[in-house]
Every structure is written in structure tokens, then in C-alpha cells.
């Protein structure tokens, strides 16, 4: 196995293109190094992208917040503007692993690892984040939602690298929230994750809403019907009860070592309802 530390994206793409099989991108390494401990792991190339300019930076541009692929999640919480704009994304990213993991793990890695239970992915999908992809055939920008296509599978072509995640500037009176369920208070993989983003009208009713459910299907589930139930309301109890039921119905989980189908469906609704309340309240606090 070779370790390479290119200084430009072009070089990184070149390296990966030259070794299309059994090559891996290294940013935080919190997933890759775990896999490397496995006796069955074999790789020919690891490309460390952390020394490429911009990979470790958060920039605010006309397009919104551009978060480099190697920005550790701990750094997101240190960016006051980002926290103010998208608290739901930052809180989701900050739930990944321990303090130690936070120092290293990245949202891009969380996204490209394509784990169904990734905490930051529902939050990114709910805010309609985009990703900047560079590759041997050129650059492209696609919705974050379209990166994972199934457990462990992405839509990235060989040699392609997600260089950054772009979060749009939130509309006025927008709130976001992410809640997950884990059996302990820390250190677990989400059994259910729910992200809600909503924008209020001047009269306090919900103007638009977007909901994303994690860990209850092979990919993030975006129950638009459920989200639409919130629009035009002030989240009265009846609406929330219907919304909760709709989210539970939308969930298509499996039984596994972390939870049962029945549990996940029920808790998906509960947490979506709670996240919607938080997002609504946050929307009211912003200008």
C-alpha cells in the first residue's frame, strides 16, 4: 500500500485515476482506519487530501458556506456564522463519535462513506446542500442527497473527489434541527436520525418545510408529504400528530443489532415531531 499526500486536487485526481481499484481517499480517517484494521482489508493506495489548499477551510461565498472536504467536524462548531445559519447541520455533525473523533471526522467523509445511519447526511439533505465534485472528466455540482446510492455505495465515478460541501444561505426566519436516537448518551451509531428545516412566514405559519430521516432505510428518506403537512400551520398538536404518523409511515427500516423495525418506525415519528418543534422555535429566533 502506498500513502500519497498531494498538494493539488489535480494531483489527487491523477493519483486516484491511475489506481481506480483499491484506492481510498483519506481525510479524517475515522472510518478508513477502522476498516484498515480488518484482516481482510487490502488497499494499494491511500490519498491524503488534507494538504490540498482549501480542504481544511470554511469559506462564506455568494453560493453560501463552502466547507472543505477535510474540515473536521469540531471546526464547524467554532464557526459562529455557520452555527447561527444552520444549527441543525452543526449539531448533527457534532454528534458523530467522541471528542477525539470530532477532531478528525469530516462531513464529506460521513457523506461518502454512505452509511445509512450517518448523522450529518439527513441534516445536509434537509438543508438541500450541494457538493462540489472534481474528477478526471471535469467538475460538477450535485445535491448531497445524490451522493449515497445505497449502503456503502456512492454515485462518484472512479477518480472523483468531493472537494467541498456547499450549504446555501438560509432564507430569513429559517430554523433547522437534528435529533437522533441512541441507546446511550454518546458514542453510538444512530438508531434513528431526523432532520427538519423550516421557514416561517411573517405571521408565524410555516412557509416551507423539508424533512429527512436517517437510519430507517438504505438511503436518507425525504418524506415530502409529511413535510407539506407542516406548511401553513403553526405546528398545532393535531398537525404534529399527523406529521408524526406520516414520518413513522415513511420509514422503511430493518431489524438489526441496533434496533427493531417497530421501534425505529415509532421513534422516527417521535423525533421528527420534536425536531420540527425545535426548528420552528429556532426559526422564530432568527431575523
Amino acid at each position: 500500500m502506498r500513502y500519497e499526500r498531494p498538494e493539488t486536487l489535480e494531483d489527487a485526481v491523477g493519483l486516484l485515476s491511475a489506481t481506480p481499484e483499491r484506492s481510498h481517499i483519506l481525510a479524517g480517517g475515522t472510518d478508513l482506519l477502522v476498516r484498515m484494521k480488518n484482516d481482510d482489508f487490502d488497499a494499494d493506495l491511500v490519498v491524503d487530501i488534507k494538504r490540498i489548499a482549501g480542504m481544511g477551510e470554511i469559506a462564506r461565498t455568494d453560493a453560501g458556506f463552502v466547507i472543505g472536504a477535510a474540515v473536521p467536524c469540531a471546526k464547524l462548531a467554532e464557526d459562529a456564522a455557520l452555527v447561527a445559519a444552520w444549527p441543525g447541520v452543526v449539531e448533527a455533525a457534532n454528534l458523530i463519535g467522541s471528542t477525539q473523533i470530532q477532531s478528525r471526522c469530516t462531513m464529506t467523509g460521513n457523506l461518502c462513506n454512505a452509511g445509512p445511519a450517518a448523522d450529518s447526511v439527513p441534516a445536509l439533505v434537509a438543508v438541500d446542500a450541494r457538493v462540489k465534485i472534481v474528477g478526471p472528466e471535469g467538475n460538477r455540482i450535485i445535491p448531497a442527497r445524490d451522493v449515497p446510492v445505497g449502503p456503502g455505495q456512492t454515485s462518484l465515478a472512479p477518480g472523483e473527489i468531493v472537494a467541498a460541501i456547499v450549504l446555501p444561505e438560509p432564507a430569513p426566519q429559517t430554523g433547522s434541527a437534528y435529533l437522533r436516537f441512541i441507546p446511550r448518551t454518546e458514542m453510538d451509531i444512530a438508531v434513528v436520525g431526523t432532520a427538519v428545516v423550516l421557514t416561517r412566514d411573517a405571521d408565524g405559519t410555516v412557509a416551507s418545510a423539508r424533512v429527512a430521516l436517517g437510519a430507517v432505510g438504505p438511503r436518507v428518506i425525504v418524506p415530502d408529504d409529511a413535510a407539506q403537512m407542516l406548511v401553513g400551520t403553526t405546528l398545532d398538536d393535531d398537525t404534529l400528530a399527523r406529521f408524526e404518523a406520516a414520518c413513522s409511515d415513511a420509514a422503511t427500516p430493518i431489524d438489526d443489532k441496533r434496533g427493531t423495525v417497530a421501534f425505529r418506525k415509532e421513534v422516527a415519528g417521535v423525533l421528527a415531531r420534536r425536531a420540527a418543534k425545535i426548528a420552528y422555535d429556532r426559526a422564530g429566533e432568527t431575523q
Binding site: 441507546p183 446511550r184 448518551t185 454518546e186 458514542m187 453510538d188 451509531i189 443489532k257 441496533r258
Partner: peptide
């Protein structure tokens, strides 16, 4: 592993 064999952590 300690990820899914869940012993109490400090915050528990």
C-alpha cells in the same frame, strides 16, 4: 467491539 457492545460511558 465497543461501538455496539455498549458499556456505560461517562455521560451515561
Amino acid at each position: 467491539g465497543f461501538l455496539d457492545y455498549r458499556i456505560p460511558v461517562c455521560s451515561d
